[in-house]
Computed example of a mutant assay.
Amino acid sequence: MREIREIGDEKFRLLCDLMSGCGMRNAEAVAVNINNIVSDNTYRITEQVNQTTKVCGRLKHRKPGEYRDVPLPSRIRQEIEGYARKHGTIDGYLLRDPRDPSRPFQAYLLQNQWQRLKREHPSLVPEGIALYSFRHFFASQCLQLRIPITDVADWMGHKSLDVTFKVYRHLMPGSIARAASSLDLALAA
């Protein structure tokens, strides 16, 4: 993933970092706001850029005003803060429409760059890798670190735990064997 993020511009790298480091959806990442850093290790996702209306709005599967708190690795926090220092913000938003700074950055601009990068660097972007793969990287890493799937589902903003389980169950194949082994020990005591 690191090589792929390096072939894009600064905005692309920031968005890839938000997706792979915090599990954000594309539309959530483009609405990144420095004011949503609520602690050294927590980012509060409060809105996303709506693909139809092109304005910031409620999160997918959430009511207006609801949010998600997600892990904020220190490297990602430093990226957000560094980008804000270098480029400034408007009402805390880091990314704005390049043609009209009064409007939010649009997710399709990220998708356009992704398509161009795939064409220009086919050896770095394997067939079948989608921009969304950065978000999958986040979930996969969390689950491989044995973070509870309930936490991962919450951070990902999935509608239900069932969604997370169906998509990522293959990353937990050893759970049955671990359970059987642990139960053997407990039953022998």
Rank of each mutant, 00 (worst) to 15 (best):
K54C: 13
W155R: 01
A189E: 12
D91Q: 11
R77C: 09
K63F: 07
T52Y: 12
A29M: 07
P122S: 14
L59P: 09
L15C: 14
D97V: 01
M172I: 03
A179M: 09
A153R: 02
P98E: 10
T53E: 08
F105G: 01
V70C: 05
L185F: 13
E120A: 08
R58G: 01
G157E: 02
L117C: 00
V30P: 13
Q78M: 06
E28K: 11
E127V: 13
C142K: 07
H158W: 11
N50W: 11
D100W: 04
N50E: 13
H136G: 11
H121F: 12
L94P: 01
L185G: 14
S102E: 09
E120S: 12
Y83E: 11
V38T: 15
M172L: 14
T150A: 04
D162W: 10
N36I: 08
C16F: 02
R116Q: 13
T89K: 06
R25S: 09
E127F: 09
R62L: 09
Y83S: 08
L15K: 00
G8T: 05
I34F: 00
E81Y: 00
T46W: 02
R178M: 12
I45R: 11
G57N: 10
R25Y: 11
F134G: 09
V32A: 15
H61K: 03
L124V: 14
A153W: 00
F12M: 08
T46D: 06
A186R: 15
A186Y: 04
D100H: 08
A107W: 04
D17M: 11
R5C: 05
F165W: 14
Q113P: 09
F134A: 14
L72S: 02
Q106H: 10
S123D: 15
R103H: 05
A130Y: 11
P73L: 07
Y43W: 04
R146M: 02
